[in-house]
Nucleic acid binder design. Structure first.
Length: 484
DNA sequence: TTTTGAGTTGTTCGA
DNA sequence: GTCGAACAACTCAAA
């Protein structure tokens, strides 16, 4: 390849280390054009949610600084990649384009069309796997199909996955010049009100923040991960890497290598590291499902769920969204989500079970709310996990598994620190009543400053009757399924 | 082809 | 308080 420059189109891979597309562009030689396009108005693309936009702003800001520290520049553009990439190729004199692949249908189709168009104009295009351990078509079952059950998939990965050699971040970047938008003009950050003001205390978007978090996790918490990952009252019981992974500030390959290396040094963490990597592979499994079911975020994976007698209630949906259901563990979770853009995984299951079973509202409403409010909103993992909870998904929970929010709260937020943090109006209650304040006697309630129905809502549905209603609905579904 | 064993994360009830 | 069984039936993956 001749003297032209090499254009790297960055998408969900906002990092310099271990980035296959970037490494190939460096190999190509010549100046680099490092480009991020904020794709708006692209048909079939799901618009990024509000919390994700906030993260994107932070991530691009960090990436831009990292690139400038190496003498380069990040080019920002907004609009259609279809129009913008050819312009940038012109402006920068690029004769080769590099990107890491995406797996949603609309994205795949758009990328394929672009690749054809560029190739036809004599520009070489090379694409890579920059976001997954293995791409969704890699592993097949004995009969040639894709995996629909997690455990055999996980076994397959353990038996056959070998990480490629790491690709170091470049020390110096020689970049081509081109016009760039100002990041602040994209309007990614909220104003009036700034509902994201709580994010900063919790997160450091960008490659450095991601690496620091990974190392901190491997330095300690990973050892107890198997049990502590279920404890929302423990700070750092989980890795907190999900938003970094979502934007590719680090890759699952880097995680895999680091966890394996650390296990070799410290065999005592083996069990925790193994469980941790299985969670990473759940993300991979979700991508297998998304690849084979492009409408995973909207359509039931199991088609028989079209007969599910879901309810409708704007008021109940809103009570759930705002963390005003009257069940402390549910409300704490929904408020953590609103305040920090993230929710502990155990609590995600509890609130999802509550929405789809106790309230019997369609899982798509929950999926959509999470899409808008999670900084880690991932097209594959979010959709697959909601369907799993609802029972419509692959390898799904049995219908009779209705989480009891009181039992779950007492069992996993056993100190009550989680509810006290996010539902401060209940903070003075004794732990014994914290997950079921209605069971406290009037004297205890008064002493804690709690007036049910005033300072904290009454339950919008009673646990026992809500559970029974859900079981009845699922039985109806079964009857309809049998009737054809 | 047929068979077999298994399937992320739970709750309730009764002994 | 502890423990085991029931809660469905089906589909998947592999032998």
């Amino acid at each position: 390849m001749g003297a032209g420059s090499a254009l790297v189109w960055l998408r969900n891979d906002l990092r310099l280390a271990d980035n296959p597309a970037l490494a190939a562009a460096l190999e190509h030689g010549g100046p680099l054009a490092l480009v991020y396009i904020y794709e708006t108005g692209e048909t079939g693309f799901r618009a990024m949610g509000g919390a994700s936009k906030v993260w994107l702003h932070g991530s691009l800001s960090s990436l831009s600084a990292d690139i400038e520290a190496r003498g380069g520049t990040l080019i920002l553009r907004r609009g259609n990649a279809r129009d913008i990439l050819p312009q940038l190729i012109e402006e920068t004199g690029a004769n080769a384009v590099f990107w890491n692949r995406r797996y949603g249908l609309a994205e795949r189709e758009a990328d394929a069309a672009l690749k054809t168009a560029l190739t036809d104009k004599g520009v070489s295009v090379e694409t890579f796997n920059g976001s997954l351990l293995t791409e969704p078509w890699t592993f097949k079952t004995g009969s040639g199909g894709y995996y629909r059950v997690f455990t055999p998939y996980w076994k397959q990965v353990q038996a056959n996955y070998q990480p490629p050699a790491p690709l170091p971040a470049p020390d110096v970047l020689d970049c081509a010049k081109a016009r760039s938008d100002a990041l602040s003009d994209w309007g990614l950050l909220p104003t009036r009100p700034n509902w994201a003001h709580g994010f900063e205390a919790v997160w450091t978007p960008g490659e450095t923040g991601a690496r620091d978090r990974l190392l901190a996790f491997l330095d300690g918490p990973v050892g107890g991960y198997k049990d502590e990952r279920n404890r929302p009252d423990i700070d750092g019981g989980t890795s907190g890497l999900s938003p970094h992974l979502r934007f590719g500030e680090l890759s699952p390959v880097q995680i895999w290598r680091a966890a394996k290396a650390r296990t070799d040094e410290t065999p005592a963490i083996e069990k925790g590291a193994h469980t941790f990597l299985s969670e990473i592979v759940w993300r991979e499994f979700s991508y297998v499902l998304l690849y084979h079911h492009p409408d995973l975020a909207t359509e039931n994976y199991n088609p028989s769920f079209e007969h599910m007698p879901w309810r409708t209630s704007e008021a109940e949906l809103e009570a759930w969204q705002r963390g005003q259901t009257g069940f402390p563990i549910v409300d704490a979770g929904m408020r953590q989500l609103w305040q920090t853009g993230w929710m502990h995984n155990r609590v995600r299951m509890i609130v999802a079970s509550f929405l789809t079973k106790h309230l019997l509202l369609p899982w798509q409403l929950g999926e959509d709310w999470f899409w808008d409010t999670l900084v880690d909103a991932d097209p594959a993992a979010n959709a697959a996990s909601w369907q799993w909870t609802a029972g419509s998904g692959a390898d799904a929970a049995p219908y009779f598994r209705v989480f009891n929010p009181i039992t779950q709260g007492s069992k996993f937020d056993m100190t009550g620190a989680y509810v006290r943090k996010f539902c401060p109006e209940l903070a003075e209650l004794p732990t014994k009543y914290l997950h079921a304040p209605w069971e406290a006697d009037p004297v205890t309630l008064m002493a804690a400053g709690v007036k049910l129905g005033e300072t904290y809502p009454n339950c919008i549905v009673e646990h026992k009757s809500g559970r029974e209603r859900a079981l009845t609905a699922y039985a109806e579904l079964k009857a309809k399924r049998e009737a054809g």
